[in-house]
Design a protein around this nucleic acid. Structure first.
Length: 399
RNA sequence: GGGGAGAUACCGAAGCGGUCAAACGGGGCAGACUGUAAAUCUGUUGGCUCAGCCUUCGUAGGUUCGAAUCCUGCUCUCCCCA
């Protein structure tokens, strides 16, 4: 159902109203654990394949903060990165991205890209936004100017950015929302989803490769709402499905439980993406529950703030105990930066040297990618569950 | 040699008779961070047998019920003139 004729202002031309020529994105399951929902798969996009389960570094403003694409590819071995509709729309602006020929050309990352829709920003912007049936009116965090996101223009913007996977425009509810708020919000998200798909199907990719639209399952911490949401998103036969509205203030137990509720009913042969999650432990628990894709700002943001994730546990590199520890950051780490000493990295971070933030971010990302890669191997070798339990014990350590 | 200004906690710097263990900033120490309004934010920063007590505002005395705050000597710093 088209509520009104929408003319995309962003692209500067009329949308082409004809059926999508996008081929379906391919997802092949290559292995499945027997005592867990964990699976290993291969997701094929217009910019290459992704081996799942995968962690996707977040590159909000078109860059994974502090990391060159060369290091993302060669050192960290990232297979897909994120961008953000809200941030890129505000700055540099969609016209610039279009002129560049899309985000891949703009930031010189030639692998797959996923863009988030801005739904999360609408949530986190708090008081400087207002929701209506039509969409979300919000103020720019940069200059206070007013803007409106609707399911339609968010699809158009993501067409212009040119991500391989684009996300539905949803409302992300806070973890402590009550049932009636969560229910009404879910229904709004569902109506918005219909409009997203209508717009998506009535427009074409701008740069010659296919794009896939992933719906987002909402429903807060209420299992019945989640189940309804899953049934609804399935009707779109999407290339993949996201679980949203988690890691936003609810308990981790609730997060795991809701993840389980969702993966139980989502199509087996399509990738599942748990949005915004999480800690290394969260990711292993997510994989165990049948999730294939994750993203989180934690490795970069917490890294900049001095927190390192390693296979031996968590390090706060600012702590005095590392002052004279000249051993490598992570002796068994896969990144070249892991050979820098703890004492040196501590010095850099405490001195506010940008290299410190870069090293910490790069280490953390390399660790996250190592973690999911290893998880995949363990799934393939049918040793996932044992490995996971042992790994979690170590990951929880505070060094 | 003469004149002036000043010495406050790790550093810088407010305070100028009681409500001062002493504002504020830096530094130190610790914590937070989960689809990035974040190279950010928060707490703490004399000691102890810790709702109380002890020692601290250059130093030695003094005035006062009471002093970082007023007076005197001393030491040291800085500035100006010779």
């Amino acid at each position: 159902m088209i509520r009104y004729l929408y003319l995309p202002v962003v692209s500067g031309r009329m949308a082409i109203f004809e059926p999508s020529k996008n081929g379906a994105m391919e997802f092949k399951l290559t292995a499945k654990a027997s005592n867990s929902r964990a699976r290993a798969g291969i997701l094929t996009t217009g910019h290459g394949v992704i081996e799942t389960p995968i962690f996707m570094p977040v590159g909000t403003a078109g860059s994974v903060k502090g990391i060159h694409t060369r290091d993302l590819e060669e050192d960290i071995k990232a297979q897909i990165i994120l961008g953000n509709t809200y941030h890129l729309y505000l700055r540099p602006g969609i016209q610039v991205i279009e002129k560049a020929g899309g985000l891949h050309k703009f930031n010189r990352w030639n692998g797959p890209i996923l863009t988030d829709s801005g739904g999360f920003q609408v949530f986190s912007l708090g008081d400087i936004r207002k929701l209506t049936e039509d969409g979300a009116k919000f103020q720019s965090h940069i200059d206070g100017s007013y803007h409106v996101f609707t399911p339609e223009n968010v699809m158009d913007i993501q067409r212009s950015i040119g991500a391989d996977i684009i996300m539905a425009f949803d409302e992300c509810t806070p973890g402590d929302a009550d049932y009636s708020y969560a229910k009404n919000s879910l229904e709004l998200t569902q109506r918005w989803l219909e409009r997203c798909f209508t717009q998506f199907n009535n427009t074409e990719p701008k740069y010659g490769y296919r794009q896939s639209l992933f719906p987002i399952v909402q429903g807060n911490t209420y299992a019945d709402l989640r189940k309804k949401a899953v049934e609804h998103v399935k009707t779109f036969d999407a290339d993949g499905y996201a679980i949203g509205g988690l890691s936003v203030g609810e308990t981790v137990e609730e997060m795991y439980e809701m993840t389980e509720v969702c993966t139980a009913d989502l199509p087996e042969n399509k990738p599942r993406y748990l949005m915004g999650v999480g800690t290394p432990v969260n990711i292993l628990e997510g994989i165990d529950r049948g999730v294939d894709m994750f993203d989180c700002v934690m490795p970069t943001r917490n890294g900049r703030n001095g927190m390192l994730f390693t296979s031996e546990g968590i390090i706060n590199i600012r702590n005095k105990k590392w002052e004279n520890d000249h051993s490598p950051i992570d002796a068994s780490g896969t990144s070249f930066v892991d050979q820098y000493s703890k004492a040196y990295l501590r010095h850099l971070i405490l001195s506010g040297e940008m290299l410190g933030a870069q090293i910490a971010s790069q280490h953390n990302l390399a660790f996250y990618l190592w973690l999911v890669k290893t998880a995949r191997q363990k799934i393939v070798n049918a040793e996932f569950k044992t490995w996971k339990n042992e790994m979690i014990m170590r990951l929880k350590e505070r060094l």
